[in-house]
Nucleic acid binder design. Sequence first.
DNA 1: CTGATCTTTCAGAATTTTCTGAAATTACAG
DNA 2: CTGTAATTTCAGAAAATTCTGAAAGATCAG
Lengths: 197, 197
Amino acid sequence: MGMSPLAEAFVLHFGEMGSRWGINRTVGQIYALLYISAHPLPADEIAETLNFSRSNVSMGLKELQSWQLVRLQHLPGDRREHFSTPDDIWQIVRTLAEQRRRREIDPTLSVLRDLIVAQPAGAEERHAQEKLREMHDLIELLTGWADEVQKLDTGELVSLLKLGSRVVGLLELKNRLPFIGQKRREAHSAEDSPPPD
Amino acid sequence: MGMSPLAEAFVLHFGEMGSRWGINRTVGQIYALLYISAHPLPADEIAETLNFSRSNVSMGLKELQSWQLVRLQHLPGDRREHFSTPDDIWQIVRTLAEQRRRREIDPTLSVLRDLIVAQPAGAEERHAQEKLREMHDLIELLTGWADEVQKLDTGELVSLLKLGSRVVGLLELKNRLPFIGQKRREAHSAEDSPPPD
DNA sequence: CTGATCTTTCAGAATTTTCTGAAATTACAG
DNA sequence: CTGTAATTTCAGAAAATTCTGAAAGATCAG
């Protein structure tokens, strides 16, 4: 491969990891290469660097574009299309979460809902439906949370993550001083906040 | 397949989803079947129900056991081994997170660290290393957070998830009343279980 | 022990996924 | 327009993964 050992090691590892997460190894390698590249790269250079056929790169890039993980741009004085990843790694995470949700999570929730509302044909099915409901509720809770934190700006998100489980202390604090929390936000969806008196 | 339409729909969908997340379709189906089953199942029944060869089921169960996702038990009066999933779905999520971390995240962090400390051979490599460092830090932040929330009991975890982004309000609250937080913990290092006062 | 039952292993078959080269299509400079 | 360079498509080849049957290996009741 026409790469420094450092780049090669990363690209190979990333491709391997990709394939363990359901992403085609080649696509993973293309992404890795774009990610560490200081400049947008044209498809033929990617093909040359990774020793893939030009058509394979074309398909890989198409896949990455369908996931909105790469962007295309034209450089002045060059007719070829150049590809790059977003500069902000948090944007990458957000896109990934959003796409996987759209493609996999939402359809799964929909299947689960359909199965849960069906009339059970006996005790076995009733039990199965109960398990499906548990799974549904869990996925919904997790994705609901993900939706919420997607709305935060990166700084807030990082603070939250750094806080980790210590946030539980704040939860307790809130429960002991509910009146303070009230003042900050007006009637949100009245899910779990204690009703204002 | 020897299953109700409900079970079949779930098993097929779950197998499909599994394969999109890097889990062999067959293994996904076996897991799905065990998950909705009201009783532990012996391997030969799984094979019959899903129309897989007995050996395929054996390998699938071995894989699931290596992930600690199924448990084996002996039922009185039956020499066969019976398999089941944990009853608590949160336990399943925890196990999955733990295993993926051990198998994929940690090795990735290790590769990234090695590459980051290498002497860069030019500007391109320096840029690449900077990108790798960003990725490393992000993964470390996320897994650190995951570690922390793993320590919470399920009730606390659910409260936190339900709170979603509204937790940011609590963060602001904390920043406005630092003395309260102070009282609860000294230095903000790796402690977490708040000593009950 | 013995033999019946259950489980695992593994080489090769079957299947699925990925990759390629050739041809078709598109884009655009002149 | 025209011709060249860039890109995409897609049928079949190649490769990777999964699955199976047969045989070997466990386990255990009697």
